[in-house]
Amino acid sequence: MALVLFANTKGGSGKTTAALVLAGELVKHRAKVVLLEGDPNRPLMNWAQARGMTVLETSRSRVTSAAQAAELIEKAAATDVDGGRLTVVHDDDQEGVFDWIEGASSWAHFVIADPEGSPNEWLTQVASQAELVIIPFAPSALDAKQVSRTVQVLQKVGKLSRREVKYRILLTRAGAGAVMTRDEREIRQSLEKNGLPLMKTTLCERPAYRGLFKLDATIGELPETRINGLDSARRNAAEYISEVFAILKESTQTQTEAA
């Protein structure tokens, strides 16, 4: 099982969209996925409930062990419209987040965690266990400072625990046109100059990504008649999942070799 965390201490960076695109594409490819939500605004919980899925709320489903969490996840997945391969866990009390991660590891191929866009302890706790942390970054000067803060925190967690916290920066909400804005160009140059790992794929601002929450669907389910530029969005999503998958695979191979 691989745990992927989407982290940014600022809201509106595209964390939830990026998490949902990844989850939807992985499920499409027959992976079992747990979406672990730490955002009190509950966007993923609302999305799942609108689709008729059973959502596990940690304050209502108290668990005392990982085995119990695994059992609940499996039962919830059985009611899912995606053929029992996707479960959403909304963690609203933080106390048992590790039990839920351990429980999910027995059932899922991937756990995708989406915290609140604020400086919060849930984010650092999940980051300490993650195989990959993706930092979504809507390229603006305001967001750049928060990305910098998020990276520093991840580096501190890694240094203190003597375990590398692998992370990548993902540009989101960038213009889909051929011409890059000056801000984006300068930010890319700065990231490169400072050796920060930027993903090759950019999740551009597209109607399809907004449509995920408008129509409570995944990219694969969106109707072509209602969404403009769906083909481009699907290609973009495919490139994105391909890159994430390659990073995770490389990471797993490195861990296996080290062991």
């Binding site: 730490g38 300490s128 797993t252």
Partner: peptide, 29 residues
């Protein structure tokens, strides 16, 4: 490479994360 299998939490990293969160003024939810 990602088959589900029981994974134990790395407690050293978890404690380090809590300490960093406290040190950085990150709030508990």
């Amino acid at each position: 490479a990602f088959e589900p299998r029981p994974k134990s939490i790395d407690r050293v990293s978890a404690d380090a994360a809590s300490a960093v969160a406290e040190n950085q003024g990150f709030t508990r939810r």
